[in-house]
Write a protein that binds this DNA or RNA. Structure first.
Lengths: 187, 187
DNA sequence: GACAAGGTGTACCGATCAGTACATATCTTG
DNA sequence: CAAGATATGTACTGATCGGTACACCTTGTC
């Protein structure tokens, strides 16, 4: 049972689930897409839900890595980095394969707060808020708890609108709004 | 073919789709829930998709009616009304049956921008943005186009976070953020 | 090369999916 | 009350769902 086969499955399943949705993607489609047999899949993951959870954990890591790394590349101070996050988002929105946030979609299909998929999605958002808070602290701003929550709202709103109104780039508005908010949180 | 039966079907289907999701709700479940036979359903709607579209159109009307009416009740000037929207949202978030925004979820399950369900969801958000713009105009603010888009971002972000972090009420943060934004858009 | 162990593919399971055929019931109009 | 039309319930269709039984095939070890 090669671990690489498992990784390959998770990576390809991640792409299909992200593009097509969770309920809309059957295990048979994954077999066709990955050329991995169903038996092997169920050797690695007891249920479809377990596979989904694995893809979400990979996505969490990949997405936060991308966002943070790109924001750091585009900035030179913590305060700039907060704003640069929205430039990174803008790049993401422009990708052809952009189809909203995987965790918003996951929590849309698995709505029960007790559901593990919902819980993993909530944790992802919490980690992003923590990232904003740490940046705001480094930038020497005040009320960073509140500020980071507000920035998170603008980020999530931008993703939702980018998905629904593909002709608009909401990251520009979001970035400007964040600028104004930061000014109200200076020490 | 009574029109009231049709309305009854749409109303009950709306509740079930909202609570359980679209792909997760089979027509047989709707039969069990509404006590309306499948034959009758398919007399009123050619496909499940048509029924979903009908529920979304009803939801659009119901939700905007609620939001606007409640915001007006809680305010006495256009500027106050903008802020009062977030008090109305707060009330909505606190309802037990609150399960995020039906249109965010619809566009999560029907991601193709060309899909009618996606289009109806996009239009719903556009109408809400127009409402914010009209309020901002009445309030005598400047750059109301940009401002209304920013307010929309905060509203959508608040909905997403209210759904994922049920122990938090993001409408408070959103409202404060809107206050700060309005100040930057004064004539 | 014999043999066990474990990964793989096929072909299948009952359940459920969206949608329909058809027979029965109910209502409208003479 | 009779006849035609419309609404309804049951019982079904082929397709697909998540998941599994089982035969096959590769691999390491002796």
């Amino acid at each position: 049972m090669s671990a690489s086969k498992r990784d390959e499955l998770v990576q390809k399943a991640l792409k299909v689930f992200y593009q097509e949705g969770f309920h809309a993607t059957g295990m048979d489609k994954l077999v066709a897409e990955t050329k991995i047999s169903k038996t092997s899949m169920y050797k690695h993951f007891r249920t479809k839900e377990d596979l989904i959870l694995a893809t979400l954990r990979l996505r969490d890591e990949q997405f936060r890595n991308f966002m943070i790394r790109r924001a750091q590349e585009l900035s030179s101070t913590p305060e700039e980095e907060i704003l640069a996050v929205f430039d990174a988002l803008s790049e993401w929105f422009k990708e052809d394969k952009f189809k909203s946030c995987m965790f918003i979609k996951a929590s849309s299909e698995y709505q029960n707060p007790e559901h593990p998929i919902h819980a993993v999605s909530a944790e992802h958002k919490r980690l992003i808020k923590v990232y904003f808070k740490e940046l705001a602290d480094k930038a020497g701003l005040k009320n960073t708890e509140e500020l980071s929550r507000k920035i998170l709202l603008l980020k999530e709103g931008a993703i939702v609108i980018a998905h629904l109104h593909r002709d608009i780039d909401p990251s520009i508005d979001a970035k400007e709004a964040v600028k104004a908010l930061i000014d109200t949180h200076r020490a």
